[in-house]
Design a binder for these strands. Structure first.
Lengths: 194, 194
DNA sequence: TCTCCATTTTCTTGTCATTCCAAACTTTTT
DNA sequence: AAAAAGTTTGGAATGACAAGAAAATGGAGA
């Protein structure tokens, strides 16, 4: 069926292997794991061999036993060398309706890989930032802003900060913030958000 | 049923919110997303409101449209504050002995905080990159390089890539890599490493 | 008001995760 | 050795619940 092709896309995650590894690491049998999770050993076996895809509740049950989060199963260990080269021309450009400028998406989702865990974020370049008055934003995550050109007034919460070319700031973007140009020239910079 | 309690454990992941956010970020309607994913708008609506938990194949279909991996849905964010403002003048400058240029450390160590885990990274600006021949590097982690000016030849493993101002690349820096200028002018760019 | 569009409800259906049980291995016991 | 005890897999049956269809709701204009 149509799902057939989609399911292939799940294989790279190596869910089965991960499950088996977790279990064997604790030298546990399928039956024992079955007791802890209230799942049948038969199914666990099928899951580990990729004959079957667990539902989220099922996967969570297993995760709870091993003390891992669900991310664990979807972050891949595969060595990814070069992930992407984003050339300026090939980028998607979206209007930054909130700020009034425009945003080039370089990476929509980046995997920062630390120890075992990964952090997702996206990386964007904005070339023009709101002229005079800009609406204020508030989005989940952290924002790392590096200003390449221009001068920018940034208000985070009640704090007003002026950035000049070459300055960088790292702040909690769940806090209400807004920005507007402080120079005649356009501002450009780089934003990394989680 | 017994699943009832387990499903509560899924709520913290905020799957629905994430789905909605992704969709709205591209100002897309349920119907339109439905077409791209071959899923009914009705179901998408239920997913976004947490009335339903998607199967993995279904979730993958959506993920593919937005260009995110499945991990995206299982990593959660937390509130952080303004961490630092680094002004150009106050920065520490170190010679980049490996590359031959010099490096300004903007942040020596940033904490990207996902779920419960933390990711350490540092953020650096390099203003001059190796003249002709540069030694090759190899350090743990991932590297995100954004080139601001100049032209740079980057060799990762056996692959040679030329970056121009405005280009960005994301690669595994555990792989041996080296770089040198491809232009007469100095190169400057930004590097984020884990 | 009415129309148009997007989202939500309700109800129904089909799929496929899940179970049960038996067969096939694997390792230990005597 | 063979038997016993334990662990993993295969297959058929079932039922839970994801997913679809269609109708209802709710806005936003005109």
């Amino acid at each position: 069926m149509l799902n057939k092709t989609i399911e292939d896309g799940l294989k790279p995650y190596g869910l089965g292997e991960k499950l088996r590894t977790l279990r064997l690491r604790k030298s546990m049998g399928l039956v024992e794991l079955g007791k802890h999770t209230s799942l049948s050993a038969a199914m666990l076996s099928k899951l580990e061999r990729g004959k079957l895809f667990p539902t989220l509740p099922t996967l969570l049950r297993i995760a709870l036993v091993f003390g891992v989060g669900l991310e664990y199963f979807f972050t891949d260990e595969r060595k990814r060398h070069v992930v992407a080269v984003a050339r300026k021309k090939e980028r998607l450009r979206f209007p930054d309706n909130a700020g009034g400028g425009s945003v080039d998406y370089i990476f929509e989702s980046l995997n920062f890989k630390a120890t075992e865990r990964k952090l997702h974020g996206f990386y964007a370049e904005f070339e023009a930032v709101a002229s005079e008055k800009s609406r204020s934003h508030q989005h989940p995550g952290v924002e790392l802003l590096y200003l390449i050109s221009g001068k920018l007034d940034l208000t985070i919460g009640s704090e007003l900060i002026t950035l000049e070319a070459g300055d960088a700031i790292y702040f909690d973007s769940t806090v209400r913030h807004s920005y507007h140009r402080a120079s005649k020239t356009l501002c450009s910079g780089i934003i990394v958000t989680t």
